[in-house]
Design a protein around this nucleic acid. Structure first.
Lengths: 143, 143
DNA sequence: GTGGTTGCAAACGCTTTGCAACATG
DNA sequence: CATGTTGCAAAGCGTTTGCAACCAC
């Protein structure tokens, strides 16, 4: 179970396996798509878990690489689950689904340009947004 | 002069050529690199121009495509001058220099993946950060 | 003169933090 | 039973907005 893997990682990095944290991780894993801190806070409220806890947990997950911040259009407050191996995503603006982009292809293109001007690349961020196959089909028949 | 071009565009879109606006555009054009709203506000303060004006002008320039919001690492509050033709940048984290990346190469890679999964791409955002040639050399000799 | 523009200050929303009580390992 | 964690409320931060005076056209 992905949830336990993450909780174990948290423990290994000196954190504890607590009820609020577990609930937050469960929600995030269950979503399988982009989400905002706001949304998680709303889902935690009924359980009596506060926003501070959500933000702190999100920060911890981010530093462990389990969560990545997306930059879709003008928005920069969305996150997605990540396994740390790829940094790029196709984000569906309709349903929030997130598909990983194999890093190599994009990275190669960026590095080609960088090399040409002697730029030393430290990192990069790419997010592509649009409609996933499911939502694209739905649009054609419903819009 | 780039400055007048922008001011004329503003006028053509129903805006007016005012002293504060001109000052803001001048500063932005003069920088030739990434900047934050905060920095522009600080530079305008001595002239008696307020933050609201800076933010409103920045928004107008953005809607005209003269300014683009960058997403460098965890930051999403930096902007850069843009001519609207390319959406990708190599951003130097040392001096703030911004180099455009020809869109085609990166776009092609992203579209290859998108096509494979039936994803309809609406837009995308890529920013690569690191050290430009000048700062890279300086680092080797000074750090 | 009219309507867009301005500065100010207050409001805003999201995020962070100080703190005392609490619960995990 | 020590220390990381929690919820709460207050503070922090960058940004936006309401408003009356103002100025470009």
């Amino acid at each position: 179970m992905m949830i336990d893997t993450i909780l174990v990682s948290l423990q290994q990095s000196g954190h504890r396996d607590t009820r609020p944290r577990r609930a937050i991780v469960e929600v995030i894993v269950g979503r399988q798509g982009a989400f905002t801190a706001r949304e998680i806070v709303a889902e935690m409220a009924p359980h009596g878990f506060g926003r501070a806890t959500v933000y702190r947990t999100l920060a911890a997950l981010q530093s462990l690489g389990y969560v990545t911040r997306l930059h879709v259009g003008p928005e920069c407050d969305r996150y997605t689950i990540s396994d740390g191996s790829h940094h790029h995503h196709l984000v569906c603006t309709a349903c929030g689904a997130v598909f990983p982009i194999a890093g190599c292809e994009v990275e190669q293109a960026a590095h080609t340009v960088a090399r040409r001007i002697g730029f030393a690349v430290d990192g990069h961020h790419l997010d592509v947004y649009g409609r996933c196959a499911t939502c694209g089909v739905r649009r054609r028949s419903e819009d």
